[in-house]
Amino acid sequence: MAGVVTARRGRRPAGSGVPLTFEVIAEAVRERIRSGGLQSGDALPTQAALMREFGASSLTVQKAMTLLKQDGWAVSRPGKGAFVAHHDHPDDGAGDLDGPGVTAPAAGTTARVEALERALAEAVEQIADLRGRVEALETRSGKRDR
């Protein structure tokens, strides 16, 4: 497969361009869909098959499948498995992958990432504010104890 990126395990440092194993698996499946190797409605490879192919744990493969589903590339059918998403399933959050020129549902993903980044920045600000309040209280408490 062209453009294969070597994955690494564990946590990624901020700003690192090295994808984690579950991201490599998800991208490999997306590439199979883009190239026509998997068509809309086709069953995705089983968890066991992906574990063998990538030498990954079941949790890693599950994370890859979750990512594919969140991004609209795959849908789950209870009791049946995971399938390539297509327009026949609008209620399960999958986008239309049958249209000409469709490569990835990036706009929705980008918007979700940006919203999460904003929420994270707000949380960091709130933590810093609370930390300052605690330090102020501890300082006042320390002065009274003397």
Rank of each mutant, 00 (worst) to 15 (best):
F83A: 01
G101F: 15
G108H: 03
A115R: 09
G93N: 12
T110C: 03
A111N: 06
G93C: 05
D96Y: 12
A115P: 01
A106I: 14
Q70W: 07
G95H: 12
L67D: 05
D88Y: 08
K69E: 06
T66Y: 06
L97S: 12
E114W: 00
D88G: 14
F83W: 02
L97Q: 05
H87I: 03
A85R: 05
S76A: 15
D92H: 10
G79F: 04
K69M: 10
G79Y: 03
K69F: 00
E114Y: 00
T66I: 07
G81N: 04
A82P: 00
A111T: 09
T103N: 07
T109I: 05
L97A: 05
K80P: 01
G101C: 14
D92K: 11
R112D: 02
A106C: 06
L67F: 04
F83T: 02
A111M: 11
G79A: 04
G81V: 13
D98N: 11
G95W: 07
D88V: 09
P105Q: 10
A85Q: 05
D92M: 13
D88F: 07
T109P: 00
T66P: 01
D91Q: 13
D91R: 14
R112G: 01
V102F: 15
V84G: 03
D91P: 00
D88T: 11
G72P: 09
W73C: 06
A115E: 12
R112I: 00
P90H: 05
A111D: 11
G99Q: 15
A94K: 04
G72A: 12
T103F: 14
R77I: 15
K80A: 11
T109R: 09
G81E: 03
D91T: 07
G101H: 15
G108Q: 03
P78A: 08
T109L: 10
V75W: 03
A111R: 13
L97P: 02
D88N: 09
W73T: 01
D96M: 07
H89G: 00
G93P: 00
T103W: 12
A85D: 04
D71Q: 14
K69C: 12
H86F: 12
H89S: 05
V113F: 12
G93Q: 09
D98W: 08
D92L: 11
H89M: 09
H86N: 15
G79W: 03
G99S: 13
G81R: 03
H86L: 00
G101V: 10
S76P: 03
D88Q: 14
D91N: 14
F83P: 03
D96R: 13
G95C: 13
A111Y: 08
W73A: 06
H89R: 08
G93W: 09
G95R: 11
G79P: 02
G79S: 02
V84D: 04
L67Y: 02
D96A: 09
L68Y: 04
K69S: 11
R112W: 02
A111L: 14
T103E: 13
G101P: 10
G99C: 01
P100W: 06
A111I: 10
V84I: 11
D96K: 10
T109G: 06
G81Q: 06
R77Y: 08
D71T: 14
T110V: 07
A85Y: 02
H86K: 02
G72V: 08
H86G: 10
G72Q: 09
R112Y: 00
L67K: 06
T109C: 04
T110Q: 05
K80E: 04
A82I: 00
R112S: 05
P105L: 15
